[in-house]
């Protein structure tokens, strides 16, 4: 399982992304949904990319998704990630539709496969920042 050493740069929320990060702090995955057309989207935006409506609301996602693709990283990007090697960087397609990048944790990297069902889990990196990750979904 990945740890969050202090050397890892903490993400800095913006006004636009603050509700997402507040959700993470509460270990809750929040994405946007358009009130006009129903589209879900991530990352957060000022308006719906399907119909341009500005009536985009924050909703709680199920936290369930599947692995769209993945890689097992053996050469870390910076020293801050050295202790995590080998770690899994993945693209996850949420049940609601949007895709995002994450790590797949709480499993042997060799077990990860495209199409694998996963569920959200949160790592507390500081008092304010928890990072969204995924682990294999319990059957």
């Amino acid at each position: 399982m990945m740890t969050a050493p202090l050397e890892k740069a903490l993400p800095v929320p913006t006004g636009e992304t603050q509700p997402f990060w507040e959700g993470c702090q509460n270990h809750e995955l929040r994405i946007q949904q358009c009130s006009a057309c129903g589209q879900y989207q991530f990352y957060p935006r000022l308006y719906c990319t399907a119909c341009m409506s500005e009536q985009v609301e924050w909703v709680q996602a199920s936290g369930r998704g599947t692995v769209l693709s993945f890689t097992v990283v053996y050469r870390p990007v910076t020293k801050a990630f050295t202790e995590d090697v080998p770690y899994v960087v993945a693209l996850v397609t949420l049940e609601e539709g949007p895709q995002l990048m994450s790590n797949i944790v709480e499993c042997d990297p060799e077990q990860v496969a495209i199409g694998m069902p996963v569920e959200s889990v949160f790592e507390d990196w500081s008092e304010d920042i928890a990072v969204l990750k995924f682990r294999p979904a319990l059957a």
């Binding site: 993400p11 992304t17 990352y43 890689t71 050469r75 870390p76 960087v89 693209l91 994450s102």
Partner: peptide, 21 residues
Amino acid sequence: AQFERPYGPPIPAFYALIAQA
């Protein structure tokens, strides 16, 4: 910065995602 870098992808990892797919 917020939605990719926290996961530690080195540049080859971005392309590895494509290759794996």
